[in-house]
Design a binder for these strands. Structure first.
Lengths: 122, 122
DNA sequence: CCGCATCCGTTACGATACTG
DNA sequence: CAGTATCGTAACGGATGCGG
């Protein structure tokens, strides 16, 4: 298939806003990219790779493309070459902070019994 | 494999609380089960199936088992037969309400341009 | 009927190797 | 350094079967 792609086509499962949010963000990696950008401001491809969860390259590239196409993240130098061209949050992406905060608070309260060495974040 | 199973074993990707939350809830279905229980109080297996997203039976059974094993949901009649034995939220599950609210608010603000007939919920 | 388990084709994921 | 190609594995999703 094409090496370049815009136009992610979404199959929205229903008109429910929660469902639609999960259609986009309901996976194990997308919100971690947002987390890294909240924590660090900008982040290059290889810096994302250094995060402790160690996302694989194809998943990372796919999610960066997806989040970019939805206007959640963007390149810091849109017209530059990819090399050392970092990503940052758009206002849409920055608005995900409360989602991450609530997930973090819930996990610390209700998941610690299953995962004792858990730690704060964001 | 076994018809009965407790003991879901989790591979926590890191000590980050957000990551751990996504290890558990980072998929397209688990939080929709929680949504239905917030909206309706209790819900039987077949009632979950009637939700507009139409989860398939094996996924639903798997998620109900997972959420139960983590103490997020429970049977209304723990010692009764499965038939017409509804599920409800535990305090842990009820505490996920702010997560769903934030996802819903974000989607209504930033996803409506991609999904115009989206609607409120929870 | 209701609550699943099983089967099976399709899609997504994940590790690694490789390229401009 | 920023990805893409490949390929084996796991998850998903629909259909169906089956016991209670």
């Amino acid at each position: 298939m094409g090496t370049e792609s815009e136009a992610y086509t979404f199959d929205w499962r229903s008109v429910c806003s929660i469902t639609s949010g999960l259609d986009v963000l309901g996976d194990k990696w997308s919100l971690l990219i947002v987390r890294d950008l909240i924590a660090h401001g900008t982040r290059t491809y290889s810096e994302f790779r250094e995060s402790p969860e160690h996302v694989s390259t194809n998943i990372l590239a796919d999610r960066l493309r997806l989040l970019t196409s939805l206007g959640i993240i963007e390149r810091t130098n849109p017209d530059g070459v990819a090399r050392n061209n970092a990503f940052r949050l758009t206002p849409s992406g920055a608005a995900l902070r409360p989602v991450l905060e609530e997930i973090g608070k819930w996990s610390q309260t209700y998941l610690k019994q299953f995962h004792s060495n858990m730690v704060d974040s964001v």
